[in-house]
């Protein structure tokens, strides 16, 4: 690897590192979600500094060329990150559902209680809660 290429790559990894840190600092992203990307960035810098690591790993796993190995591990790593996002999304989906349902149930309770307190109040009120349902239907 030429010095020129190394310098170029280090600059890229460094800029990405700064960018990642900035998003955390500005609270645009949670450190928990940025951490994998930070680790990936550091690992890439490590490989750039010591390219010998790659060929050593290749021999270890019996993979023919370093580029194949990189593709494989990149896929696995990105897959892991995306899947963890799927899990997180599912959990949040369930949380939003629970909150929405509770809010709707509570609002309805409050409305019913309110209408019981002030009977015969306005044309669109129902005097006895839901018991009088539909009495003003066309």
């Amino acid at each position: 690897m030429s010095i020129r290429l190394k310098v170029f790559l280090f600059t890229v990894w460094f800029l990405i590192f700064l960018l990642l840190l900035r998003t955390v600092k500005r609270k645009k992203a949670d450190i928990r979600f940025v951490l994998p990307w930070l680790l990936l960035d550091i690992a890439l810098a490590g490989v750039t500094a010591f390219p010998g690591i790659l060929s050593a790993f290749c021999r270890m796993f019996g993979i023919e060329t370093p580029s194949n190995m990189l593709f494989f591990f990149a896929l696995v790593f990105l897959g892991m990150i995306v899947f963890s996002l799927s899990l997180s999304l599912s959990r949040q989906n369930a949380e939003i559902r629970e909150l929405t349902q509770r809010l709707a149930l509570r609002e309805q309770e409050e409305r019913k209680a309110e209408q019981r307190q002030k009977p015969e109040h306005g044309p669109d009120r129902e005097p006895k809660g839901e018991k009088s349902k539909g009495e003003k239907l066309p």
């Binding site: 709707a104 609002e107 009495e135």
Partner: peptide
């Protein structure tokens, strides 16, 4: 629903 006195559970977002 409200105008016709039908009790309604109002979901803030579409579930």
């Amino acid at each position: 629903c409200r105008e016709n006195g039908i009790p309604v559970l109002d979901l803030a977002v579409n579930l």
